[in-house]
């Protein structure tokens, strides 16, 4: 079975929010709901300054704090390493939101269930269905695929750029950043 992951190159990201909007469309989220959010980082002192747009979403951690704290087992990690929420088990206690150090989970207003990025996992397909954030990115800042296949685009890109998870090995995250 594959082990899915993503690489995000913030040097290419322009902060246009196309990924957020594409994700909202695909997952029928409201305008204020989103599985992708942005952090903006400014650094340096005038005149040597730089700014960085950092798209954030579920990191699909192998050592996922949300999965550990979820009392009902609604949050689980599937056989492909994708962290998912079984909406029929979630009571909306928000413990996972408190535990996630990346603040990438949200409450669905209508159901009260906690949701987040699922790498566009499709149960019927038994795999990710063309993640819309990757497909829509205007700058090709995102690469997605099987981390265990050394010839996959994502594995090659991570190796070539020495991409790292945003918080090092804190939670064994599977989104790797080039910065």
């Amino acid at each position: 079975m594959a082990r899915y992951g993503m690489m995000i190159d913030t040097r290419k990201c322009v902060g246009c929010f196309a990924c957020r909007v594409a994700c909202q469309m695909k997952n029928t989220l409201g305008p204020k709901e989103g599985f992708v959010h942005f952090e903006f980082l400014e650094s340096g002192t005038y005149p040597d300054v730089s700014s960085e747009a950092i798209p954030m979403q579920c990191m699909h951690c192998a050592d996922a704090p949300c999965e550990k704290v979820c009392p009902t087992g609604a949050t689980y990690i599937n056989e492909a390493g994708v962290v998912l929420v079984d909406a029929n088990k979630c009571i909306g206690c928000k413990y996972c939101m408190v535990a996630c150090p990346y603040s990438v989970r949200m409450i669905e207003e209508i159901s009260g269930v906690v949701e987040k990025c699922r790498f566009c996992w499709d149960d019927e397909m038994g795999g990710p269905n063309n993640p819309s954030c990757v497909a829509t990115c205007i700058a090709d800042a995102r690469v997605f695929g099987d981390l265990d296949d050394p010839n996959s685009d994502v594995a090659v890109a991570i190796a070539a750029n020495d991409a790292q998870p945003i918080a090092g090995d804190l939670t064994e995250a599977k989104i790797f950043y080039v910065r």
Binding site: T72, N88, K89, C90, I91, G92, C93, K94, I107, S111, G112, V113, V114
Partner: peptide, 10 residues
Amino acid sequence: AEAGLRNPLR
């Protein structure tokens, strides 16, 4: 816990 409140069996 709103989602549970609407589906108490959860």
